[in-house]
Amino acid sequence: MENKLYTFIIYSENVPGILSQITAVYTRRQVNIESLNVCASSTPGAHKYTITAYCDEPMAKMLTAQIEKRIDVLQANYFTDDEIFINETSLLKISTPIMLQNKNVCKIVRIHNAHIVEVNPIYATIEKTGITNDILELYNELNSTGCVLQFVRSGRIAITKDFTEHLDEYLAEREKQRKDI
């Protein structure tokens, strides 16, 4: 089976130690995590993990099943790029003297729809949001002018294109079951 970049969206209770339990599921099966983002989700108390990794579909299934098996994990699902909206952000620190010398630098920033968030005589900070390729293109073009001092790119974040919020439905169902006990 073909290896593809899958995005895993995982929700867990906000308790310590879950991240290492989740990443251990990948490492044990020799799957390398490409990017990882963890933050509080829109559901109170639930943390959201957005993880990307290259693997085939049976492996993606196995990973989600094994992650969901951890006691404090609420839900785990995997997606291909067409099933989700994705975004990343990046910051570039560039040299102000080079920017003033080379008019192309400002042009590249404008063409790529990036924002200058700070300028001082020494450096300027540029912010660019988009998908991986957009960000890397901007970086490569700026880098060819020799102006880039620092570059950082965030992990992927993603939201599903589904009409239903599966986590909320799951939690509502579980709360009903709690009352029956």
Binding site: E13, I71, D72, V73, L171, R174, Q177, I181
Partner: peptide, 8 residues
């Protein structure tokens, strides 16, 4: 404890 919402 006889209920954990993340564990069924």
């Amino acid at each position: 404890i006889n209920f954990i919402r993340s564990y069924d």
